[in-house]
């Protein structure tokens, strides 16, 4: 009789200890997910940073769109500068931009015109943020995101390097994605790739419109209509020793068939390198004596409306 209670007691004792211990270790956040979250939060606090970014869209291995660019951003002074090259359908377009006191400046390599978007007074007077409530908001958002991510957070692998930096990686294939994502994503992708057919193709060389053809990009993407599914999502990041994200890349693979029944495998690759934390000064440009044109407000959306 005593033996029975002893066995039962120790079963309860041991299992509750193990349960609490494993629960705590699950909560303690030694996972890559938490490391990444902390680095992301930390990286958000920088006042300035230089970014090198690249994006590539492929269809069955053929490059559709290739974009690369670099930027210098000063968050606290709200200034930035940078340039970007976009190659789509074999045509290359380049542009550079400056965001400085007095407004934003865009320049395409195709012309000598500097397009300026002046900041009006309303926009300039940004509301002073309520720090406390914002923090609470982001805390709640974090809890919700944590809950949505759930066990997927354990997918995030972390690889500690000898120099104190960390390699974070996560890869999800179709079967690992939540059922909801699997169910909804095809609809979203179908809609997204369909849209450009309805848009009228303007060669954007109208006065006041920035000469950049977004349609070129959209029309290059194959229009998927059936058997659409997300094959793979992969994200990689490097976190340096001072807990800043210095490299970030993401891959998304979608497969499907177009109207003619031809199979497509579309991959999107994004990557960015960050450097010069808190020590980057964006370039500025002096517009005196340059060919300057005021730019319309929302590029490509409300045609013929001068801002």
């Amino acid at each position: 009789m005593k033996k029975k209670w002893l066995v039962l007691g120790s079963a309860i004792g041991i299992s509750s200890v193990v349960m609490v211990a494993t629960g705590i270790s699950a909560m303690a956040g030694t996972s890559g997910y938490d490391a990444y979250k902390s680095a992301l939060k930390n990286t958000k606090t920088v006042s300035s940073v230089a970014i090198q970014a690249e994006a590539q869209l492929q269809d069955n291995g053929k490059v559709l769109v290739d974009a690369s660019g670099s930027a210098k951003v000063n968050v606290s002074a709200k200034t930035a500068s940078g340039s970007a090259d976009v190659t789509a359908d074999g045509t290359k377009q380049s542009l550079s931009f400056y965001k400085q006191a007095g407004g934003a400046v865009l320049k395409s390599s195709a012309s000598d015109v500097f397009y300026v978007k002046t900041q009006n007074a309303k926009e300039k007077r940004s509301k002073p943020k309520d720090d406390a409530s914002e923090q609470q908001m982001s805390q709640q958002a974090e809890t919700v995101i944590d809950a949505l991510v759930g066990n997927l957070k354990d997918y995030v692998a972390v690889n500690d390097q000898t120099d104190g930096s960390k390699e974070i990686s996560v890869q999800l294939d179709n079967s690992q994605l939540p059922a909801v994502v699997n169910a909804i994503a095809p609809i979203a992708i179908k809609q997204a790739t369909k849209e450009h057919k309805n848009e009228n193709r303007n060669s954007g060389e109208q006065a006041g419109e920035f000469p950049f053809q977004e349609n070129v990009i959209k029309s290059a993407v194959p229009q998927l209509t059936q058997d659409i599914k997300i094959e793979k999502v992969a994200v990689k990041a490097n976190i340096n020793a001072s807990n800043y994200i210095d490299h970030q890349e993401a891959d998304l693979t979608v497969s499907g068939k177009d109207d003619s029944g031809a199979a497509h495998q579309v991959t999107l690759h994004l990557q960015a390198d960050l450097s010069g934390y808190n020590s980057t000064t964006p370039d500025t440009i002096d517009l005196t004596g340059k060919n300057v044109q005021q730019i319309k407000r929302d590029i490509g959306k409300h045609h013929g409306e001068n801002g």
């Binding site: 179709n174 059922a179 699997n182 169910a183 609809i187 659409i228 599914k229």
Partner: peptide
């Protein structure tokens, strides 16, 4: 609808 296809991973989605 372009809804989810019954693919190899159907048993896992389910």
């Amino acid at each position: 609808l372009g809804f989810m296809a019954v693919s190899q991973s159907f048993p896992l989605t389910m």
